[in-house]
Design a protein around this nucleic acid. Structure first.
Length: 117
DNA sequence: ATAATGACTGGGG
DNA sequence: ACCCCAGCCATTA
């Protein structure tokens, strides 16, 4: 058995599958959705184990900063950006504006004044 | 059982 | 705002 526990992986995939097209979620955010904050790295691990023909929209998961992750797979990183732009996600200086494209109820927990109109 | 690794994160320079 | 470093945690060696 390679990578993370099968159960954990499936939970990650379930969450990722719920991210609507045109939106992105941070690894830490996904981990929180799994009620297991602090496992951002393991979330990335689960996505890294995905096959090329998966139906999981792994491209919608980026770093909290909005930058593309995929360190060990630069080729996948390029593909990821292409897929996201095809979904309508705009990139600025190789980063995504989480304030606009970030998904998840958690993002609304912050101060309302923080939010962009 | 200990040490190294990595699709991460937050704080400090 | 960008780069570097220490902290985290399950999987591997």
């Amino acid at each position: 058995m390679r990578a993370v526990s099968a159960g954990f992986r499936e939970r990650v995939y379930e969450v990722v599958r719920r991210i609507p097209a045109g939106k992105v979620m941070g690894y830490g955010h996904v981990a929180s959705a799994l009620t297991q904050p602090g496992m951002a790295r393991q979330v990335g691990w689960a996505l890294a184990a995905l096959p090329g023909d998966t139906d999981v929209p792994w491209q919608r998961v980026v770093r909290s900063s909005g930058h593309i992750a995929a360190q060990g797979a630069p080729d996948r990183a390029i593909l990821q950006r292409a897929l996201l732009e095809a979904e309508g996600v705009e990139f600025t200086a190789d980063k995504v504006d989480m304030r606009r494209f970030g998904f998840g109820p958690e993002v609304f927990l912050g101060d309302p004044a923080e939010r962009e109109a």
